[in-house]
Simulated scan of single mutants.
Amino acid sequence: MQGYRISTAFEDMDLDCIHQFISQGYWAKGVPRETLDKAIRNSFCFGVFTESNQQVAFARLITDKATFAYLADVFVLPEYRGNGISKWLVSEIVSHSELQGLRRVMLATRDAHGLYAQYGFKPIEPVENFMQIWNPGVYQGDD
């Protein structure tokens, strides 16, 4: 995409930018910096950067790169939305050479179903096979 580049190199990621956004997001509000840093270090991350190396978007996959991946923490900074960055990012993720042949790629989203459907994501079937331990208030001290 003209004027932007995608990197998967950990050293390129702007951890301050990523934490600033994600810690305010509905899915990880209040996540401690050290928790997010650990999550990023143990994930396969994708960052979108301007020509001046400013990070404007991010996504990470929790994956073994062989059978399974969970796509998480996807965002585009508000001032860069509407330029096709999210579509480009998701397209690059699902076509990445290290992620081919996976049996399952999952994600959870409150409001971006239309975006992900364009890249083959569908509602979970059969839903009754899936279980979870879910603690959405963990970063706020809720049990």
Rank of each mutant, 00 (worst) to 15 (best):
G3L: 07
G3R: 04
Y4M: 09
R5P: 01
S7Q: 04
T8I: 11
T8M: 08
A9S: 12
F10T: 04
F10K: 11
F10A: 13
F10L: 15
E11H: 15
E11C: 13
D12H: 12
M13T: 14
D14L: 06
C17L: 00
I18N: 09
F21D: 04
I22S: 02
S23W: 13
Q24K: 13
G25H: 10
Y26V: 05
G30Y: 12
V31I: 15
V31G: 02
V31E: 03
P32S: 07
R33L: 05
E34F: 10
T35S: 13
T35E: 13
T35L: 08
L36M: 15
D37Q: 06
A39Q: 09
A39Y: 04
N42L: 12
N42C: 10
N42W: 11
S43R: 08
S43H: 10
F44L: 15
C45I: 04
E51P: 00
E51I: 04
S52E: 15
N53L: 13
Q54C: 04
V56S: 00
A57E: 11
F58P: 00
A59Y: 06
A59C: 15
A59P: 09
I62R: 11
T63W: 01
D64H: 05
D64G: 00
A69G: 09
A69P: 02
A69W: 00
V74R: 06
V74L: 15
F75Q: 04
V76T: 08
V76E: 01
E79Q: 15
Y80N: 12
R81A: 10
G82M: 10
G84A: 03
K87R: 12
W88M: 11
W88L: 12
L89T: 06
V90G: 11
V90P: 11
S91I: 00
E92D: 08
E92V: 01
I93V: 13
I93T: 05
V94M: 05
H96V: 04
S97G: 01
S97T: 02
L99F: 08
Q100E: 10
G101F: 08
G101S: 11
L102A: 00
R103M: 11
M106H: 11
M106G: 07
A108N: 07
T109P: 09
T109S: 13
T109I: 10
H113G: 09
H113Q: 15
G114K: 07
G114R: 06
G114F: 00
L115W: 04
L115M: 08
Y116K: 01
A117H: 14
Q118I: 00
Q118R: 03
Q118E: 07
G120F: 07
G120K: 07
F121W: 12
K122Y: 01
K122T: 05
P123E: 02
I124V: 14
E125K: 10
V127K: 14
V127D: 12
E128R: 11
N129C: 08
F130A: 10
Q132Y: 14
Q132D: 13
W134R: 01
Y139L: 03
Q140V: 02
Q140P: 03
G141F: 03
G141W: 03
D142H: 14
